[in-house]
């Protein structure tokens, strides 16, 4: 069975893909769907949802369109999730690969460095970093990348270590390929599937982290995001439930979609694992 056939038959994964495509579509087409800027005060504040056709999800404390805020918030959440994961991979993959492939002092050095980051709780470190840099979209993305690369490095290291003991690596050595070429051309491609699975879950974690930071008031004050919406709505939660409810639902849907996809990828890329699971 090919990868795609296996993935397609996984209902959960397909639901995840559909949801994620929907979220991406809303994010991309936000300016076409909503004429209003998400910060624009369009109606009286605290308009409940479904009370007006043009403002389906109601208005917030300043009379801004909640639906438009959600759509534009999707942009920030997805952007931060994707970019920070990419940056984390750019740090984690080379570091883990070098450590696993060369071993010895390189390995020791790289792993001690990684552990240094792993001993500090993720969220606490992210808060400190954002507070030092001043909250902007780029500093938040960077902070999330900095706290999420260590697991990548450890995963890649373990994979590379096991792959490099295989016979085809010895064969490549004998064929006279340089070590660097072997690592890049032969070893790394064989570690891709766990990295892909991990990356999909990391996007979900990054979205959660960004929302948590914004909720605490450490978001970019010039970017509309879901975490910001919930944080701002916290003080009025008793009188205006919809202000925190809808962005909460948006976060759940997106994170759930990414997790389902990650699971699906995992099963599809490791047929052995999934068959075992199927039998048990």
């Amino acid at each position: 069975m090919s990868f795609w056939t296996r993935f397609r038959t996984n209902i959960g994964a397909m639901v995840g893909v559909v949801l994620l495509i929907a979220v991406i579509a809303i994010a991309v087409f936000a300016p076409l769907i909503f004429a209003n800027d998400p910060w624009q005060m369009v109606q009286r504040p605290f308009l409940p949802p479904f009370s007006r056709e043009d403002l389906l999800l109601g208005t917030d404390t300043l009379g801004r369109d909640v639906a438009a805020q959600l759509a534009y918030g999707a942009r920030v959440s997805l952007l931060v999730g994707l970019v920070s994961t990419l940056v984390a991979l750019l740090i984690g993959v080379p570091l883990g690969a070098l450590a696993g492939f060369y071993g010895g002092l390189v390995d020791e050095g790289a792993m001690r460095f990684t552990e240094f980051f792993q001993t500090i709780p993720n969220f606490a470190l992210a808060i400190v970093l954002v507070a030092i840099f001043e909250p902007t979209l780029s500093s938040i993305t960077l902070a999330i990348a900095i706290v999420s690369w260590p697991p990548v490095a450890r995963l890649v290291r373990a994979e590379v270590m096991s792959v490099r003991k295989r016979e085809f690596v010895d064969a490549a050595m004998l064929a006279g390929l340089t070590k660097r070429r072997i690592l890049v051309r032969q070893v790394l491609p064989n570690t891709l599937s766990p990295i892909i699975v991990m990356a999909s879950l990391m996007v979900a974690t990054a979205i959660l982290l960004e929302s948590s930071l914004s909720f605490l008031g450490l978001g970019d004050p010039n970017a509309m995001s879901w975490g910001y919406m919930i944080g701002a709505a916290r003080t009025v939660i008793r009188s205006a439930w919809w202000l925190s409810f809808f962005p909460g639902v948006a976060i759940i849907i997106t994170v759930l979609a990414l997790n389902l996809i990650g699971e699906g990828l995992n099963d599809a890329l490791n047929p052995h694992l999934s068959r075992r699971k199927g039998r048990a």
């Binding site: 910060w39 005060m41 404390t61 300043l62 008031g217 004050p221 701002a232 916290r234 003080t235």
Partner: peptide
């Protein structure tokens, strides 16, 4: 000093 002041700044920006 809290949410009120943040909202105020947003309204001014708008």
């Amino acid at each position: 000093y809290g949410e009120t002041w943040q909202r105020w700044a947003e309204a001014v920006r708008q």
